[in-house]
Design a binder for these strands. Structure first.
Lengths: 146, 146
DNA sequence: TTCGTAACACAACATTGTTGCAATTAATAA
DNA sequence: TTATTAATTGCAACAATGTTGTGTTACGAA
């Protein structure tokens, strides 16, 4: 891990009142260096040898509560995690962008620029948040299968 | 179960090349008589005494593959099942309506009339299907808490 | 009635989530 | 720097759900 990155992670932890620990830095580093959301199995596979499974579970839970990351359930119900944009806070997640779940590689992409269009709901339902997952074939897989 | 309903269920099974069995009729009956999608735990709780858990699992799996029901994962990742509209078939699910997950009673509603609005996707992503889950407070819960 | 296949029950195991508790570690005050 | 305290971690244990294999049962066709 480069020092400049570590500094960034430390700031993030500090800002949220969390102690700087090796485990947390590792998780942040893995999540930061990927171009798609990271699945729980993948995380456990990579980090699980160094960090206990329960610790990983609690780190992810804490991060999500603090608004550091957000969780996306893919079409199989597998948890995927991605770093939140800067504007996210514990009480005001700005993660209502669209997610894309590739049927081939199973990756989950955050389409940060693609917002969920406004929706006309039936009367009586009070909307708090929305969660749109688009399924199909991602950029990478389309190219590789051509 | 009323005879007229049983007849309907039998037709549905027959149409999909499935044998008429007590277990399947029971599942169809439970799913048909509810105004929201039915969660796996609920199903298991109600039917699980009469039908083995694995049998229930396989029935649901078969039904989903045949397009008789569709599965909705709620915000906790719990599987919920609902009867498909008539226009569904195994290879052409017409279930791209919106689902509503109540934060209070945790029920999942199929908002059959609320369609997902068209979306502008980034280049390179090929869309097969979309899945929109809206969270909030449902009709019933709003009334009961007032 | 017999035969073949589909459906079922039961056993067993995998994965993920979850809690409690004791041991350890990081932040900070002295 | 050291001591203190609260947060963090590891381990054990368990729950829920998904999943597969296998032997048995039941149903429909010949």
């Amino acid at each position: 891990m480069e020092n400049i990155k570590i500094q960034k992670y430390e700031d993030l932890l500090l800002k949220n009142g969390l102690k700087r620990t090796g485990a947390r830095l590792q998780v942040l580093d893995v999540l930061s260096n990927r171009n798609s959301a990271t699945s729980q199995p993948y995380l456990e596979n990579i980090i699980g040898k160094a960090i206990d499974r329960v610790t990983l579970y609690r780190i992810l839970k804490t991060f999500e509560e603090k608004g550091i990351i957000h969780r996306i359930l893919d079409n199989q119900g597998t948890a995927n995690y991605a770093i939140c944009s800067n504007s996210c806070t514990a009480h005001n997640h700005h993660d209502e962008h669209v997610h894309f779940n590739c049927n081939n590689c199973l990756k989950v992409y955050c389409l940060a620029e693609t917002k969920i269009p406004p929706l006309k709901m039936p009367a009586g339902f009070e909307v708090y948040s929305m969660n749109l997952i688009v399924s199909g074939i991602c950029k990478d897989c389309k190219q590789h299968t051509n």
